[in-house]
Amino acid sequence: MGTWATGPFGNDFAQDWAEDLHESNDLYFIGDTLDNVLSPDNADYLEAPFGAEGLAAVETLLRLEGRGGVEDDDSAAIDEWVDIVKDKYKPRADLLDKAGRALDLILSARSELFELWQDSEHFEAWRASVEDQKARLRGK
């Protein structure tokens, strides 16, 4: 996986996910992504691609809620999509609940993404980024 930043869109998986999101004009793709993260198939061990896509999905929901993080070149494709659909779609409570559970799994020892970042000198910055998503999800 090509990774250049600790934020939710600073990797190849998230950028590919953002391209796929542009083919969607509703929240189904986001829900499907969160369902993949939380699938029983991933209960024992969440592989990095699913974790990276999950972080992108959560951040997209947060942006739809008006609680998005930093807007930059990495988030440009998502920000464009959000601008197009924000008046039509508001995240449902079940999606926000799934987002919280996905973040908990991604931050657990059962997450390959967690393991990969843990072995990096940028682990604390990555973890702080995910914890920031959790705080924004809770409305803080």
Rank of each mutant, 00 (worst) to 15 (best):
A48N: 11
E121K: 15
D104Y: 01
F123C: 00
A135M: 06
A76F: 12
H122S: 12
D104N: 08
I78W: 02
L103S: 07
F114M: 10
F114N: 09
E115M: 10
E131V: 05
W126C: 03
Y28I: 05
N42K: 08
E71N: 08
L21S: 05
F114L: 07
N25R: 15
D132G: 12
Y89Q: 12
L62A: 02
W17I: 01
L95V: 04
G68H: 04
D73F: 11
F29T: 06
I78C: 04
F114T: 06
V58I: 02
R67T: 00
G54K: 02
G51I: 05
N11Q: 10
R138A: 11
P49R: 02
R92D: 13
A102W: 05
Y45C: 01
T33R: 01
R92G: 03
D26T: 06
G69T: 00
Y28H: 09
L95N: 05
H122I: 11
D83P: 08
K90D: 12
A56T: 02
N25Q: 12
V37F: 08
G31V: 13
L103I: 12
A52D: 00
S111T: 04
S75I: 01
K86Q: 08
Y45W: 13
A109L: 10
A57V: 02
P49L: 02
Y45A: 01
S111E: 08
N25S: 14
E19Y: 15
R136S: 02
D94V: 12
A125Q: 14
D16F: 13
V85L: 02
S75A: 07
T3I: 14
T3W: 13
G139Y: 00
A76T: 14
G100Q: 01
E115G: 04
D79Q: 06
T33S: 05
L62G: 10
Q118D: 12
L27E: 00
L62F: 00
D74C: 08
E131Y: 04
L38P: 10
I106F: 00
D74A: 11
L21Y: 01
E80L: 12
R136L: 06
A52N: 05
P91V: 00
T6V: 15
D87Q: 13
I78E: 00
L107R: 06
A76W: 13
A102F: 00
W117V: 07
E53H: 08
A93M: 08
L34Q: 05
E47N: 10
N25P: 07
T3Q: 15
W4E: 06
F114G: 08
T3V: 15
A14G: 07
Q15M: 13
G100I: 03
A93C: 07
E121F: 08
S129T: 01
R110T: 08
G139Q: 01
E71V: 07
K98R: 06
R110I: 07
D41T: 10
S39F: 12
P40E: 09
S24D: 10
G68A: 01
F9Q: 06
L61E: 04
Q118G: 10
A128C: 09
R138H: 01
A135V: 00
E23S: 11
R127Y: 09
H22G: 15
